[in-house]
């Protein structure tokens, strides 16, 4: 459908609405919000707008980032434009069965205030169709446990930037398991290695935010289509 293709393109280019100055070559053209409104007026199915237009566009953005064509700011701009469209759909989506692929609980571990990496991963996951519960920075192990116990099927993502705080990932994972929670857990951050991730019994590790959506889908056994 042409309208959905236009919507997808607006997401890919990060063009939020007709008045948005970014990108300069789309100024004056309808943006994500305009196109979602139009699609709603034309009674296009909600899941088509969401999955083929918004998420479909963000999937391409993710591919462009992975291939080096896009930088993070471009992903952020696209994600923000996509969110503008999503805000229009959300009141309507609550009346339908959940369209989210799954839930991810994220946080930077105890003692660590760094959040650039965590935020990037969160943004990728949201753009990929996941609901993200962001616990913020300096998150105590008990907090991870408390939230995970309310979301037993959620994936947990932990981040650390310091060699002196990465050990708190181990402590957090141990506490999660001691509380008999079997959520899948992924870890990342500058000092983290695959070896360390294995050693602390994490289920997944990546040093590349670009592949995190696929990793989450695999771990939560979500059909990749």
């Amino acid at each position: 459908m042409r309208l959905i293709e236009e919507l997808k393109k607006a997401v890919i280019k990060g063009h939020a609405n007709v008045d948005a100055a970014y990108p300069p070559d789309m100024k004056g053209q309808p943006g994500v919000i305009d196109l979602v409104n139009k699609a709603l007026e034309e009674n296009v199915e909600l899941k088509t707008i969401l999955n083929k237009g918004l998420i479909g566009g963000m999937n391409i953005v993710g591919e462009k980032f992975s291939s080096g064509e896009y930088f993070v700011p471009e992903m952020m701009i696209s994600a923000k434009a996509m969110k503008g469209g999503l805000n229009l759909l959300e009141p309507l989506l609550v009346k339908e069965p959940s369209q989210k692929l799954g839930t991810v609980i994220m946080g930077t571990v105890k003692g660590d205030m760094h959040d650039i990496g965590k935020n990037l991963v969160g943004m990728m996951l949201e753009g990929g169709g996941f609901e993200v519960i962001d616990l913020g920075v300096d998150v105590l192990p008990e907090k991870f446990v408390k939230v995970a116990s309310k979301h037993p099927d959620a994936l947990i993502g932990m981040s650390a930037l310091l060699t002196t705080t990465m050990e708190n990932m181990r402590e957090t994972i141990e506490l999660i398991r001691e509380n008999s929670l079997d959520n899948k857990i992924i870890v990342g951050g500058a000092p983290i290695t695959e070896k360390f991730a294995n050693e602390i019994n994490a289920d997944g590790y990546s040093n590349n935010a670009g592949i995190v959506v696929d990793m989450a889908k695999n771990l939560l056994k979500i059909d990749n289509k």
């Binding site: 930088f71 993070v72 700011p73 952020m76 650039i116 990037l120």
Partner: peptide, 9 residues
């Protein structure tokens, strides 16, 4: 700055 950087702002 952190926030502005990742947004290219």
């Amino acid at each position: 700055h952190d926030e502005a950087l990742v947004h290219g702002d």
